[in-house]
Design a protein around this nucleic acid. Structure first.
Lengths: 354, 354
DNA sequence: CGGTTTTATGTAATCCATTACATTGCGATG
DNA sequence: CATCGCAATGTAATGGATTACATAAAACCG
């Protein structure tokens, strides 16, 4: 390219006469396009933004130049001027967790339908990272943010904040959230185990910092109460949503000599870990122990036996979250709200009669 | 806050005298900060960018105002002016695929060490989406891009392009890539099966558009050749990397009455599907059929039996990709290069002697 | 045909921060 | 004491688009 340039001492030889510029070859701007197309910058901008208000002839000419030179408007300049980016950031603690992927798909569908793009940020539950991404909104690099964990980063924007909390929720009523009724879902799962005749039902909890986990535990207790079963505290173990945590919990129960015929887990990954630990101890699923998970991630269909679990409406959660965010973006006056969806039990092979 | 505001009819009562402005409450700009701190905009900018060149006293005053008003500089304006964003976009076809998550972690580590932030884009192998994200670079919303699929979107930036292709590669030598030696890895996997005494080894291929899949297939054939085994074309099936594809492939082999004692799969998810199909037909793993995957995703450790697979250096792939991208960003002159890492076989329970 | 819209385009202000260059004040040096 | 250098700060240009407002030409109308 630079070789070509030096050899092009005599310019304007490529037809058209004088208007073939010296081809500065660097990055293009509206100005250049305007000069080459022999119109003003305003017209170029219009031809690109609202083609219908530019005359057929001019529009064609401008588009030809734009295409020929491979011009892409500088989005920073545009966004600076218009004070909007049409970008939203979706934050999730862990992209590995298949639960989120469908939620994201829901977010992206609605975003796309409304002319927004979605960028993902993985926070690894790290407060600093959560804040760093949230700052993008304050710094005007994104219009809004959807968070999928139980903390809400501060966004120092006066007026209300363009944030929706999805899948989780925080008590603060100023924060819009979309999530499922975890108490109802968890108790439905345990109800089902009770129906199957189980009475010694273990529970593997999730991180207790997260309100949804507290709710799931509450649902578990609620169902036991309804069935007049006294909860055995030794049959509840704390976990952190990982496969390993599920394994450890079961090891713990077994090593303590606890007897139980069913385990309800706060998420599918822990259920997978639990199943693994049970099998490695020679127990059969579901003949000896029934296992129920929560979330219905894609892999839960492929465990052996396939996992009975609570299926969250993942796509709907995402769609709803994005819809709410767009509402907020369009009208800062809309009050924050909590939207609660319902989840349903999916019975597969990991549960059976006692 | 708004309640407080309305009650603050008489302003300036909070000490300091006249300089406590009427609190315009809208978005802050350097100008406002400068006015309140009684300095010029240049000094404010300096106090924030290079504090050391501003006098102790002034710096303190400015920082106080910045903090008090919750001022965040407009990143669009900054990036526009400085022509860099310190943002890079990492594109992956499918966030569900656990293979990528570790790669991304590697990317983020190096990015962070160098002051960059990473935004993720899921393309779902959709050309339009790939291009849309890539356009962010052309539009100056991001400095560079790492792609994790086998197509390279066009980025109409004159000069070289700030793009690194990771995990996959394209033939084009103008594109920098980081990937593993798939031929060697695949043949090592098959060599191992041969060592175990297997001779009827089936192969489930990945998308043939992807060069790495072609390489894996080539590795398979290479190993067979080395062992003087004639390849049976009926024992090769096409797949698309999904669990379902693995199931279908095995169903196909079995329904055709093919006899085989081992299956080598182009990725772990297909291997999981294959195992599932084998088990549901009553075959035991590894007693009746050995299964080998590729990638070593997190779940492969938790299948039953645990999957023998090729472990890609996922973190290193990510780190290396980001390192290369930073090199390119720092010096546009560095020539593109292909970096090939090696992968190793991890033997677990899904393989056994014939 | 004069006057009023409408359509197409241009001029210049604007968005907000960064930074080159200019200015000021002060201590150091000869 | 004049001069120089340096430190601290200010002034104004700049980045690249969008768009309010202005203007010119064309279309319309009675």
């Amino acid at each position: 390219m630079s070789a070509k340039e030096t050899s092009r001492k005599r310019q304007g030889d490529k037809g058209q006469g004088v208007d073939v510029a010296p081809q500065p070859a660097r990055v293009r701007t509206v100005k250049e396009i305007a000069a080459i197309a022999k119109v003003s910058v305003a017209t170029v901008s219009r031809a690109l933004q609202r083609p219908e208000i530019v005359s057929e002839e001019t529009r064609r000419r401008i588009h030809e130049v734009v295409k020929r030179l491979g011009y892409t408007p500088n989005a920073l300049a545009r966004n600076l001027r218009t004070a909007r980016t049409r970008l939203i950031v979706a934050l999730l603690p862990d992209i590995t967790n298949p639960f989120f992927s469908e939620v994201i798909r829901g977010i992206e569908q609605v975003a796309y339908e409304n002319g927004y793009s979605v960028l993902l940020g993985e926070t690894q539950s790290n407060l600093v990272r959560e804040q760093a991404y949230a700052d993008m909104v304050a710094a005007r690099q994104a219009d809004g943010i959807i968070t999928m964990f139980h903390r809400v980063p501060a966004i120092p924007i006066d007026g209300r904040l363009p944030l929706v909390n999805a899948c989780e929720y925080v008590k603060d009523s100023a924060i819009s959230s979309v999530y499922v009724d975890n108490v109802a879902a968890a108790s439905a799962a345990v109800d089902y185990l009770v129906t199957l005749g189980h009475r010694d039902i273990a529970f593997i909890a999730g991180p207790s910092l997260s309100p949804i986990c507290v709710d799931r535990e509450q649902g578990y207790h609620l169902a036991l109460q309804r069935a007049n079963i006294a909860a055995n505290p030794a049959l509840t173990a704390a976990g952190d949503f990982s496969i390993e945590a599920g394994e450890r919990a079961v090891e713990l129960f077994l090593s303590q000599g606890q007897s139980f015929s069913a385990v309800f887990c706060s998420n599918d990954e822990m259920a997978i870990g639990a199943m693994r630990a049970l099998v490695s101890r020679g127990l059969r699923i579901p003949e000896d122990v029934s296992v129920v998970g929560f979330d219905d991630i894609r892999f839960s269909r492929y465990t052996s036996p396939p996992l009975t679990t609570i299926s969250q409406p993942k796509n709907a959660l995402g769609r709803e979250a994005m819809t709410m965010l767009i509402e907020i973006l369009n009208d800062p006056e809309v009050p924050p709200r909590k939207r609660v969806l319902s989840a349903e039990l999916v019975v597969r092979g990991s549960t059976g009669p006692r």
